[in-house]
Structures are given as structure tokens and as C-alpha cells.
């Protein structure tokens, strides 16, 4: 394991310790001995090949899934040991931007963003109105507040969802593949928004992605996952200089290397000619 000394990791908002996780519906082990520290006030990128379970990691942090072993602490609380009420209370301090945006389809953009405020605060409607407009202004969608989610483009939906995610001024935002399926312009907009929001609101962000070029420009710290655990971590500059073949393969997008091109299979000869061929 390549250890990178970094003092920023001392002040961690999320600490993942020795995590083991397998989905209940399959024997496939997703994580084994996964440990991570997410520094407070920084943007931490989690990268790795598709299917490695990056979204699963976010769901584990949000305690929507429970690990078989190990722990995840958020702001000093072990999220998996809280009772239901405390967990829902804690979740008000974090929010998640889903890949699809997950806007409520039966509400306008405005009501979507007002929703967490109306649910969790006792604020009068006038103040909620001001907050919603400010959040929409931050993502550039103040003019789109009366549209329904179905009328938004993919990029706009994700920005609206981002406005909803920051409505309650959380401490932590979990971004699930925020750049996936975006055109270059909306990608640029979202990269800029993540960076700006993180700085101006003093958030901690975890960005799960495999869009290396984009995330390397804004991330303060990067974890690379492969083979059920962390295979490399460090600042973007440290990782770029790494001579580890796996990190090199991943950062440069090489088709074959330590992560093989072929899914595990019998040899081609066996498959084509039958396993009993002479």
C-alpha cells in the first residue's frame, strides 16, 4: 500500500475504517479492508473503474446500506450504530447529489428546492422564498423556477438538484458521478459550481467519478479504488508523479494493465474448442 503523508487528513469529517461490504443479494464482495479519511472543508475525489462500487460507498456513508464489518464515522458519529431517529437527524447535516438528480417529478423546481426547508425548518414562507431564490441564483436557474423537472435538460436537472442539496446548508455533500452524461459546457458549469460552492459555503465534498481530467482540476485529495480497496491516494500532483502501474493505467486510461481488459473467463481456446480438446 502506498502511504502518502498528508497533514490535511488529520482533521477528517468522514473516517472509514476497515470496511467490509457485500450486497445481501450476491456473494460478490464489494469492499475488503477499505479505509479512508475525508478531510474537512476539502474536495475529495473517489475514482475507480466502473462497477467498483463507488455509489455503494456513498450509500454506506449515508447509512442507506450497512457493512458486514468495519465502521464509518461522520463528524464523530458512527453512522451505522445510530437509531433511526438520530440517523435521520444526522442526515440533515449531509446531502447527496444523485446521478439522475432525483428531483421530485410532481413538483416544480421551486418546490423541489423548498422541500427540505419546509420539511425541516419552521421558517415562514417569505424567508423560504428568499432562500430558494438565492440557491437557484447560485446554480444559475432562478429563471427556471416554475418549470417541472421533466422540462429540464440533464445538465439543468443536475444543477437544480444541486440547489436542493445545498438548501439546508449541509456540512457534507456526496456527489454521485456528477459529470456523467454531460455535454462539455454543462460539465464545465458543474465543475465550477462544485469548486465555488465548496469554497464559499465551507463544505466538505466527496466526488465519486471516473472523469479524471475534470476532477483532478478541482480535487484537493484523491482516492483511487480498485480490487475492493484503496490502491492509491494523495493530492492530484502526488498521484500524477506516481510510478505505480495501476495508478498510471487508470490516470492515463490505458485499456490493459493491472486492471485487465478481459472479464475473468476461461481461456479462449477452452471456450471455442471445448475444455476437453486435446
Amino acid at each position: 500500500m502506498r502511504q502518502v503523508e498528508n497533514s490535511a487528513l488529520d482533521d477528517a469529517l468522514v473516517v472509514i475504517d476497515n470496511l467490509h461490504f457485500a450486497h445481501s443479494f450476491g456473494a460478490h464482495q464489494v469492499y475488503q479492508n477499505l479505509s479512508m479519511r475525508v478531510p474537512r472543508g476539502k474536495i475529495t475525489a473517489v475514482m475507480g473503474p466502473s462497477g467498483i462500487g463507488k455509489t455503494t460507498l456513498l450509500r454506506l456513508i449515508g447509512a442507506q446500506l450497512y457493512p458486514q464489518q468495519g465502521s464509518i464515522e461522520f463528524a464523530g458519529h458512527n453512522v451505522h450504530q445510530l437509531n433511526r431517529r438520530d440517523l435521520y437527524e444526522l442526515r440533515k447535516r449531509m446531502s447527496m447529489l444523485f446521478q439522475s438528480g432525483a428531483l421530485f417529478t410532481d413538483m416544480t423546481v421551486y418546490d423541489n428546492i423548498a422541500f427540505p426547508l419546509r420539511e425541516h425548518s419552521q421558517l415562514p414562507e417569505e424567508i423560504i422564498d428568499t432562500i430558494v431564490k438565492m440557491k437557484l441564483e447560485a446554480v444559475g436557474l432562478r429563471g427556471a423556477r416554475d418549470l417541472m423537472p421533466a422540462e429540464l435538460s440533464g445538465g439543468m436537472a443536475r444543477r437544480a438538484a444541486l440547489a436542493r442539496a445545498i438548501a439546508l446548508d449541509p456540512e457534507l455533500i456526496l456527489y454521485d458521478e456528477p459529470f456523467a452524461g454531460q455535454d462539455p459546457i454543462s460539465m464545465g458549469v458543474i465543475v465550477k459550481l462544485i469548486k465555488e460552492l465548496n469554497e464559499s459555503l465551507g463544505l466538505t465534498s466527496i466526488v465519486v467519478t471516473h472523469d479524471i481530467a475534470e476532477v483532478m482540476t478541482i480535487a484537493d485529495y484523491v482516492y483511487i479504488l480498485a480490487d475492493k480497496q484503496v490502491v492509491g491516494h494523495g493530492t492530484p500532483a502526488q498521484l500524477k508523479q506516481s510510478d505505480d502501474p495501476l495508478i498510471h493505467q487508470f490516470l492515463h486510461g490505458e485499456a490493459d494493465g493491472p486492471v485487465p481488459f478481459h472479464y475473468k473467463a476461461a481461456t479462449l481456446e477452452d471456450d471455442l474448442l471445448g475444455s476437453d480438446h486435446a
Binding site: 433511526r84 435521520y88 447527496m96 444523485f98 420539511e119 425541516h120
Partner: peptide, 14 residues
């Protein structure tokens, strides 16, 4: 399927 239920959970709404 559209993660609206998950998103409610993550917002702290049951």
C-alpha cells in the same frame, strides 16, 4: 427507480 425514495432518505425525510 429514479432514486426519489433514496433522495428523501438522504434528506432526512422518512
Amino acid at each position: 427507480a429514479t432514486e426519489q425514495l433514496s433522495s428523501l432518505e438522504m434528506m432526512g425525510v422518512d
